[in-house]
């Protein structure tokens, strides 16, 4: 299995259709095409961080400045960012929209991803954050738009879990 370039394009188009031109990210295999597209797109600003929690701060700064933005990260980066999510975003009602590569779930061949894969959903539930699984390429645009819209209306972080079905393919 390889990462699906076609579906990555759909995700990227969904980000652009949501009106977002500012991304923060830390690379991960499922995100490679997305990051390449962002790098090659003169309309897009891509800020790569050293650790995902930084991106919570950068997203907050961008939000204060009025710039629509989305965070691209792997679920382990989400797990490593929890204090920022809780003690900046949730505490101050700063919306975040997180597109999270959901590694380590059904079909995962790599042992190191598996614990994180299993706890991602329970942690999101524990935080009370709205989230959805993204499985189908034809729905991804709508889902990104909806996750983005809810974060802005509720002033709460929202997450879209990018699944294996969506991110891997045989191409």
């Amino acid at each position: 299995m390889t990462v699906s370039r076609e579906n990555s394009k759909m995700v990227y188009q969904g980000i652009k259709d949501a009106g977002v031109r500012f991304l923060t990210a830390l690379p991960e295999t499922w995100l490679v095409y997305l990051l390449q597209m962002a790098e090659d797109d003169p309309q897009m600003t891509l800020i790569e961080v050293a650790k995902e929690e930084e991106a919570v701060g950068i997203a907050a700064g961008a939000h204060f400045a009025g710039t629509p933005n989305i965070m691209l990260l792997q679920n382990h980066g989400f797990l490593g960012s929890i204090n920022g999510i809780v003690s900046l975003a949730m505490l101050y009602r700063v919306p975040l929209c997180m597109l999270i590569a959901h590694r380590g779930h059904m079909g995962e061949p790599y042992p190191w991803h598996t614990q994180g894969g299993m706890v991602t959903e329970p942690v999101l539930r524990g935080l009370g954050l709205p989230f959805d699984y993204a499985r189908e390429p034809r729905k991804i645009g709508k889902q990104i738009h909806e996750a983005y819209t809810l974060s802005r209306s509720s002033l709460v972080p929202t997450a879209l879990l990018l699944t294996r079905d969506l991110m891997e393919g045989d191409e």
């Binding site: 701060g57 950068i58 003690s87 900046l88």
Partner: peptide, 22 residues
């Protein structure tokens, strides 16, 4: 003035997000 009363470490990240967009 924005006072980050928790989330240790992220003041400079907020500053970066502001500086890039303003």
């Amino acid at each position: 003035f924005f006072y980050l009363q928790h989330a240790m470490g992220l003041a400079s990240s907020i500053g970066l997000g502001l500086a890039l967009n303003r």
